[in-house]
Each structure stands twice: as structure tokens, then as C-alpha cells.
Simulated assay, not measured.
Amino acid sequence: MTTSQIAQSTTTFPGSARVEMVMGQPVSVDIRTALPARELTPLLDDAFAWLRWVDDTFDPARDDSQIARLNRGGTIEQVPELIEVLHRCETLSEATGGWFEPRIGGVIDPSGYLKGWALERLSRALANAGAGDHRITAGNDIRVRGSSAPGRRWRVGIRDPRTGAVRKVVFAHDLGVATSGGSSVVDPHTGQVVDALGSVTVIGPDLGMADGYATAIYAMGAVRGRRFAGELARAGAYETMIVGRDGQEVVTPGFLDYSGKGARLAG
């Protein structure tokens, strides 16, 4: 059953925030742009309607979802978003050398990319609608845009998905933050669940891509994952923090631009 909470922001920025249960978890949309209530309420209504549509369309566990029908070989609707997601998943698979793989054992499951993609699309839609200052949070996926208060960057705590403790804080006006490790990640080459790392966080301009990269790096394990994270950082847009099972952190150098001092990723 969906629950909803609408409250006026208590910060110095006017706006509105709402939390609802979507995709099996609380999702919050916090808008700080000064808009009248007659505009904010429909924006929030549309935001959660979009997220529920994504869940209904892409959840492989729902018998009537498009993904479930596709897995059964049934007839699917011509949904442009479905084609987009599957194409992006193929792109991620190629970019990661097959370590991100939406099809395992003949079953399509784009969940390693989907939530980040849905939040990224929502963030762009809110910005286009005039709500350029916002934060969207769904579990370990976070998208911030604009300012949390006049002239102030958003402060995002990156939590350990196993303990909930804040491991690092990043500050940004426009950033996607995706952390993998709180749920089962499968090695696409063996079909086995991997558990060699504590967590992987990837930050960058597109939350969907960051989500996919975090999933892939976690599946790769420590050595291969660190190498790929370094290559990804040198390509320019995405930075990574890898946490080992022993709690030790290594980060790509650009990560420090958002979070301050810390361990650097060698090589």
C-alpha cells in the first residue's frame, strides 16, 4: 500500500518534499525551488506517477510487466522507454566488458540500471518544469540538482549499504550518486552472487550510468574493479569509491574534488 507524506521544507529555501513507497522502498523528492503550491503539488503527483509507471513496466517479478512478458516470449507494447533502457543496458555491457549484464540465464532484468535511469529522467523533467533545485533519493541512489539553499551546494552523505553509517560526504550542485553492495550482485560470467567487496560508489553526471558502473565494478571484485575505476576516471566524467570487506577505502582522484581528503586509487 502506498503511503505519502507532504511537508513544507523547513530550510531557508521554500519548496515542498514528499516521500512515498515505490519499487519496494521509500523514495523522496525534495524540491527547493520557490514555486507556488498550485505548481508544486502537481509536480510531485507527476513525479511519483512516473516512478510507479516505471515499476509497473519494468519489474520482472510482476506478471503483467513488459519485462516479464518479454521474458516469457509474449507480446509486448511498443514502449519507447523500454527500447531505451534495453539499449542503454547493452551499451553498459559493452563499456564494462560484459561485467554489467542485464540478461543472465536467459532472463532480462535491467534493475542494475533502471532505478538510476528513472531518477535521472525524473530529475531532468523537474528541471524542465522549472523546479531546478531538488534532491531525489531512492535507497542508495541519489540525484541532486541546483542548490539546497541560496548559493549552497547539496550535502550528500554516502552510507554504507550494510550498516547505514555515513562513510563519506560529497557536496555538489549537479551530481548523481549510486552505491552498489546493499543487495545481491551476480557475476554475469558464473551466475553466482559475489560478495568480495563492501560497497562501490560511483558519482557522475548521469545517475543511470553511475548505477550501472557501480554494479559492474562491484561484480568485478577488488583488483579488476580498481583497474576499471581508474580507466573510467581517466575518461573524464565518473569517479569511484571502492570499500573493501575490511572497511578500507580507495577513491579515484577526482572524487576528492567533491569530498575533500582521502585515500587515492593508485595506478
Rank of each mutant, 00 (worst) to 15 (best):
E84S: 07
E84D: 14
A125M: 11
S65Y: 09
P110Y: 03
A61R: 11
E77G: 06
A95N: 02
G105D: 03
R62E: 11
V79S: 04
E94T: 13
G97H: 09
L92A: 01
V79L: 13
A129M: 03
G98T: 12
I104K: 01
W117L: 02
R121Q: 15
T75A: 13
L119E: 06
A127T: 15
V79P: 01
E84M: 07
N128A: 15
V79Y: 10
A118L: 10
K115A: 13
N71G: 04
I108G: 00
E90T: 12
I83E: 15
T96G: 10
W99A: 12
F100T: 07
L70M: 12
L114H: 02
K115N: 13
G74A: 09
G74M: 10
R103H: 02
N71C: 08
S93F: 05
D63R: 10
P102T: 00
A118K: 01
I83A: 14
T96F: 10
Y113F: 15
I67P: 00
P110D: 05
L114S: 04
T91D: 14
G112C: 06
L70P: 03
A127I: 03
L122C: 12
G112E: 08
V107K: 05
Q66R: 04
L70G: 01
A127R: 12
T91Q: 14
C89M: 03
L82C: 01
R121N: 14
G116S: 10
W117D: 00
E77K: 06
G105Y: 01
A125F: 04
G97R: 07
R121M: 14
A125C: 03
R124I: 10
E101Y: 02
G116M: 09
S111N: 15
L119F: 07
H87L: 13
V79E: 14
L122P: 09
S65K: 02
G98M: 11
S123F: 02
P102G: 00
T75D: 14
G98N: 08
P80D: 08
T91F: 03
D63F: 10
Q78L: 13
G97L: 10
R69W: 11
G97A: 08
W99C: 07
I76V: 15
E101D: 13
W99I: 10
G97Q: 07
K115Y: 09
N71A: 05
S123C: 13
I67E: 00
E81F: 06
L122V: 14
H87E: 15
L114I: 11
K115W: 04
G74I: 12
I76G: 06
R72M: 11
T96C: 10
I83D: 15
E120S: 11
G116E: 13
G97T: 05
E120R: 02
E84G: 02
G106Y: 05
L86V: 03
R69F: 09
R103P: 00
